[in-house]
Amino acid sequence: VTPSEGARGGTGRQLEMESVLALRGLVLLRDSVEWEGRSLLKALIKKAALGGEQVHILGCEVSEEEFRAGFDSSVNSRLVYYDLFRDPLNWAQTGEALPGGPLGALQAMCERTDPGPVTVALDSLSWLLLRLPCAALCQALCAMSRRHACRGGSLAAEQLCVLGLLHRELHGPGPMGALSSLAQTEVTLSGTAGQASAHILCRRPRQRPTLETLWFSVLPDLSLDLQGGPPLESQPHPDPHTPQVDPASHLTFNLHLSKREREAKDSLTLPFQFSSEKQQALLRPGPGPATSRIFYEPDTFDDLDPEDPDGDLDV
């Protein structure tokens, strides 16, 4: 790899991670206990905020202070934080709880977004999914993009980006599948030997889904550092130098039948097919008991016991 090629590769990776944000719609960040995804979520939020977007955050798992830690003031001023951490179930009854519970908070969020490019971060979808019916959550997510589209015209549908943090050990395949079908992009975090990696599955409209793998780290200032990792087999790179081979050539069998061959094939009666001729043949009594007899010649070592003839059947 020449230096220029390496540089191009780096830019490509940069573009790929940015395209996670450039793509609108629902982006799922699926993390695990060992590879937490909140720092990546914060890095993506920072990128969106620096791009001049409004960022609305529904915080369920950490306090506002903990979430805002690490962002500089210019980013922090662009973040609108809906605090569902302090009193999500209204136990304290201080009147500070968000009205309508978690679902109401989710709906209130999109009421308050202005038309224009908006990023909504859900920290985390897992928290909501454990406490709300899956169907209600999916409907709320759909309604969110619909309402945004209604307010800003047809263009605005593409201007809403929902980043949802999902802890993948916590949910069964059912809810995971339901959310996946709503998502345009799924980022699955994992890693080896202290190095985090992200598998990014993108579903672009009218295109085949693509799967990319990136090695990354989130720096203390919450910027993303993308690294060149070892080449990964999951990247579908069509190599232009490989000649296209026709898989149908050099076959040892026919893929197609001629008209005559097809007629011959159709007229053949297979042994397991039951016909009226066969039925008659079976029902007709045989010529006599003398013509069908069973001959049995015992083997030399057979142990025949006239007292118990079925002894070898082990019953």
């Binding site: 060992e34 720092s39 950490v62 202290g194 780290s217 989130v218």
Partner: peptide
């Protein structure tokens, strides 16, 4: 022992 401190972002680290 597994550290999940948010003060240590996902960089190369000896987390376990």
């Amino acid at each position: 022992i597994l550290w999940r401190t948010p003060s240590q972002p996902t960089t190369q680290r000896d987390q376990s």
